[in-house]
């Protein structure tokens, strides 16, 4: 189905996530790059050598969650915008999710926006905690949102209503 719709199945998504324990310890990158393509900027971007693609740039990136610091550099460098970050260390009820977002208007910090799933369907309102858009991110802003834990595996995009 994925090849027909572009929507990964729940199993595919779960495979890319670290354990809940790991997420509760601090931010971790989730690399949703499911199929082989000739590409490796995620590996090149990571100063902590947490992502490995290897000699053959067609390999699927593998992440070592022990090494990932959740710095979000790879989010802004991935041409597929395939990487997000989840951090469960801040609260019992919510997780902080970071996603790349290349649309205008950018949300404001503190604003409530629509949280969307991987089909673009509305799931729940989410609060924008931070908008990071330094020059080094080269016009790929990273948005940090606060998401109810029960939607951890669902929310992957936002819609900013004007």
């Amino acid at each position: 189905m994925f090849e027909k719709t572009g929507i990964p199945s729940r199993d595919m998504i779960m495979e890319k996530f670290p354990s809940m324990d790991r997420i509760n310890k601090g931010p971790a990158a989730i690399v949703e790059c499911y199929r082989q393509i000739p590409c490796n900027p995620c590996e090149t971007a990571c100063r902590f050598k947490a992502i490995r693609v290897g000699e053959d740039i067609n390999n699927i990136p593998q992440i070592n969650f022990d090494k990932c610091m959740g710095c979000a550099i790879c989010l802004s460098k991935c041409p597929g915008l395939a990487i997000m970050i989840a951090d469960g260390s801040k609260s019992e009820d919510t997780v902080e999710i970071k996603i790349p977002y290349e649309f205008l208007p950018l949300p404001e910090e503190g604003q409530l926006v629509k949280g969307l799933n991987r089909e673009g369907a509305y799931i729940t309102d989410v609060k924008v905690l931070k908008v990071t858009n330094p020059k080094s991110f080269d016009r790929t802003p990273v948005i940090t949102i606060e998401v109810d834990r029960k939607f951890l595996y669902e929310i992957r995009n936002i819609r900013v209503e004007v």
Binding site: E3, K4, G6, A82, R159
Partner: peptide, 17 residues
């Protein structure tokens, strides 16, 4: 019958709805 482009591109458009 299948998406011809890279699926990372397809997914990022799909999640815009």
């Amino acid at each position: 019958p299948k998406i011809g482009g890279y699926l990372v591109h397809a997914s990022k458009i799909r999640r815009m709805g």
